[in-house]
Amino acid sequence: MTLVLLAALVWVGGWALNTWLTRGARARSRAVRTAVPLIFGATVLLCWELIVRGLNVPPAILPPPSRIGQTFVANLPLLWGDFVQTILKGAFSGLAIGVAAALVVAVLVDRFDVLRRGLLPVGSFMAALPIVGVAPIMVMWFGFGWQSKAAVVVLMVFFPMLVNTVAGLQDTTAMQRDLMRTYGAGYWPTLLKLRLPAALPFIFNGLKIAATLAMIGAIVAEFFGSPTQGIGFRISTSNGALQLDMVWSAILVGALAGSAVYGLITFLERWATFWHPSQRT
């Protein structure tokens, strides 16, 4: 019981610290901006730990974070294998194929107006559908290996990427296009030098959405059948064995991979679209 009281104290303390830090002009400094969310995260973890220990919650229901950390560190080679299987093989190959296909189709759609009017409504409709549902079918067709996961990912990322890229390709003003025409630029130079660069912010926006969808697709597809490796496989088998510390470790792998990919895309975006108003501070 003392531990639970301690958790309440930690919560109040962390919150008071954050309130004090964010008051007045102090909040504008960079150090405070990074410290505040970290303090909040640490407070949550600490409270979780104390409450789970204080109330004696069985680890089969909610393991304390320290135990998850131990499991994570102790099983690093195993989890690395899962990471390679699910993220590198399944999600990334699918993401690459899906994004490349969407970019090519987007240029075609943009070129031919009939295609744009026909494909775009269908595309935005498909983008809202629960496409993860095709996972059982893809596993049936392409087997238990990473190929079926990549296929699911391709289908999931294609439409959001297509819709975003087409919107981006139309984001040039008549003035800019006229300028290109006065330079004597034809379709291809205009596409490569004006419209694709102008579409980049939209493309990166689509990439951010697609990256998350790719992880989801690759993990969920493993619930329908996988080799004895992979994040989804680890989650479903450890779940069946009530080894929840292992489940949480696998989710941690997914979370780390997701944030890393998101960070990478943001970095690339900053590098490639440095000219865009949203990137200039």
């Binding site: 969310p37 992880m215 993990i219």
Partner: peptide
């Protein structure tokens, strides 16, 4: 705002659906 928002944004980049079976 400063404590929760960064986490809310990060949480959108991770495959939360994976939690479902658990």
């Amino acid at each position: 705002d400063m404590s929760v928002m960064p986490w809310a944004i990060i949480s959108q980049t991770i495959p939360i659906v994976a939690l479902a079976p658990m």
